[in-house]
Design a binder for these strands. Structure first.
Lengths: 174, 174
DNA sequence: GAGCGCATGTAAAGGGTTACATGATTCT
DNA sequence: AGAATCATGTAACCCTTTACATGCGCTC
């Protein structure tokens, strides 16, 4: 249900086509909120039906550029401040951990090593993105500040998971 | 795709009916991996088709008790050690944060206060569960150790989000 | 016998991915 | 002329939720 508002948010930066948005979702937003082009095109039509966006001039290869309406901006604003009712995580590793007792001590230790390494590496990638922003390489202004805040969340979440895996290893050894 | 293995894992603790499993998913697993009864009954039939579980005796109100087969245990084991290909997060607050530049400084500060408080509170609930396990109130043994490890992940993830929201507030003020 | 909880399901709809399909423009 | 890329979509399938439906057994 958030792809809808993700598209609205990207369009709030300026007009874009479905193709543009699909590229941004693949390259920039992929790790945060993956979305493929069939879903994006469908959602854009539904957003247009609701009157939250409108299609402007048709470009070269029947390219349609969309723009947010006032209603769309209102809806985006509402979504940004709403508190999500469901506080559920749905992080697969958490579910998996419930069944660790099925593994032998050796298997578990090896598994947790790998998991910790993978998460540490993901955290490092987010940290690189953060450093790049801090060096001013991604520009300035409120929009880039929001990006900075988002990647910080990535750093902290994956660091937390890495730390957890290391703690779990000690816990299950001791 | 993990509900399948969640059910397999729960059944590895001992035989149970769809109704039992639905209750456990609602009460215990709700925050980690929500699942409603229609999905659970459907999945159980598919698991039985694959030969990973079998229905034993039919009880009172046409209650069906399922039990894991050897193949089922093998599959559970495989899943526990597999590394998930997709490393995507899909944490809605992360997506939301990308568009914080749409909010006024006051709105953002208030929002982040609320978010931090909500996450701190969720972390506290997980901490209570952890303390309860540590006091031995939930029993002993490998299975409860896995529960302890899982709730620790909850504590750390929600603490990380709470800390992030507080950091973001300072960041956007300064 | 009325009501509650046990127990299992079907149907419809929304969200999401993969595969298939097609045509227009630009580049070499 | 051929290849690559731009650009949009449809169809089929999986996962998940919500609403609807039904019948059994126990307790008061």
């Amino acid at each position: 249900m958030s792809l809808r508002h993700g598209l609205l948010g990207l369009l709030a930066e300026g007009p874009a086509s479905g193709y543009d948005l699909a590229r941004r979702f693949e390259k920039e937003l992929g790790p945060i909120w993956p979305a493929k082009h069939p879903q994006i095109y469908g959602e854009l039509n539904r957003l247009a039906d609701k009157g939250w966006i409108v299609a402007e001039a048709e470009g070269p290869r029947r390219r349609k550029e969309y723009r947010v309406t006032e209603d769309g901006r209102t809806e985006l604003h509402r979504w940004l401040l709403e508190k999500p009712a469901d506080q559920n995580a749905r992080v697969e590793p958490l579910l998996r951990a419930l069944f660790y007792w099925q593994l032998s001590p050796d298997e578990l230790a090896t598994h947790l090593d790998h998991e910790a390494a993978r998460w540490r590496e993901t955290a490092r990638l987010y940290q690189c993105a953060a450093d790049s922003v801090d060096r001013g390489e991604r520009g300035e202004g409120p929009r880039i500040n929001s990006v900075r805040i988002t990647v910080e969340a990535g750093v902290r979440l994956y660091e937390a998971l890495a730390g957890w895996a290391e703690w779990a290893k000690k816990q299950s050894e001791g």
